[in-house]
């Protein structure tokens, strides 16, 4: 049984001229437990929308998203929030660390809405990403690469079954990008989490169990006709 399965997933948004623009139409997609998959797609190919659908942040117009035994469709918004807090990790391109919080607190935030804060594990994760000695630093005092390492630690903080990563190397220089990617992958493996990483970078791929071209997976009208700007 796959960890993640998408069936006939459709999502559209109203455009400025009032018409509805379809940005995601995925007939079928599966991800196994612990599998690491690269979803490769150009800007505007619906990568972020797809991750937001899987995370339960946005709701599909139709179709089904199943993660483990949970089908997201019937869940209320608050239950999707609770599910996300317990079962998913999210790594963003812009890191999205909170400036008012220290590195340690940012990692603890990743636990706060799920099972609760486990400071020892938060410190363990910071140790693992090489920033234990900076646990009290604010994000503004860190380099870009360090920020992404904290963000990776935060994504793993709630011991998720699935980590979603949206262009996690997009804001990093090549050296830091390679390091960050290795870190995400190894941490996911160590923690038994599957990884679904979306990126437009053509150089990525070799490190993953599977590479899926989003242009082949996503059959949305807007992508077929070149209309609209899928996020």
């Amino acid at each position: 049984m796959p960890l993640l399965s998408l069936n006939n997933l459709v999502k559209g948004f109203p455009s400025e001229n009032g018409r509805r623009v379809e940005v995601v139409r995925i007939p079928s997609f599966e991800l196994a437990e612990g599998e690491q998959v690269l979803l490769r797609g150009e800007s505007g190919s619906g990568k972020s929308t797809l991750l937001n659908l899987i995370a339960g942040i946005v709701v599909a117009d139709s179709g089904e998203i199943t993660i483990g035994d949970n089908s997201l469709g019937p869940l209320s918004e608050s239950k999707r929030d609770a599910f996300r807090a317990r079962s998913l990790g999210y790594v963003f391109q812009s890191f999205h660390l909170l400036d008012g919080f220290s590195c340690l607190e940012n990692v603890e935030l990743g636990m706060s809405f799920g099972a609760g804060v486990d400071r020892a594990f938060a410190r363990e994760l910071l140790e693992r990403v090489g920033l234990r000695n900076r646990e009290n630093y604010r994000p503004s005092a860190l380099s870009q690469g360090q920020k992404q390492r904290v963000a990776v630690a935060r994504a793993l903080a709630n011991r998720p079954r699935l980590v979603l990563a949206d262009e996690p190397t997009g804001n990093l220089d090549p050296k830091n990008a390679v390091a960050a990617l290795e870190l995400i992958q190894s941490l996911c493996r160590e923690n038994g989490a599957a990884l679904l990483l979306v990126s437009h970078d053509p150089q990525l791929g070799a490190q993953f169990d599977r590479v899926v071209e989003l242009s082949e997976l996503n059959q949305a009208d807007s992508l077929q006709s070149g209309e609209g700007d899928a996020a």
Binding site: A55, I57, E77, S78, D81, A82, R84, A85, R86, L88, Y90, F92, H96, L98, L109, G110, S112, F113, G114, R154, N158
Partner: peptide, 10 residues
């Protein structure tokens, strides 16, 4: 938005 993405309810 980040807090919500981390699972904070509305």
């Amino acid at each position: 938005a980040v807090l919500r993405a981390l699972g904070a309810r509305k």
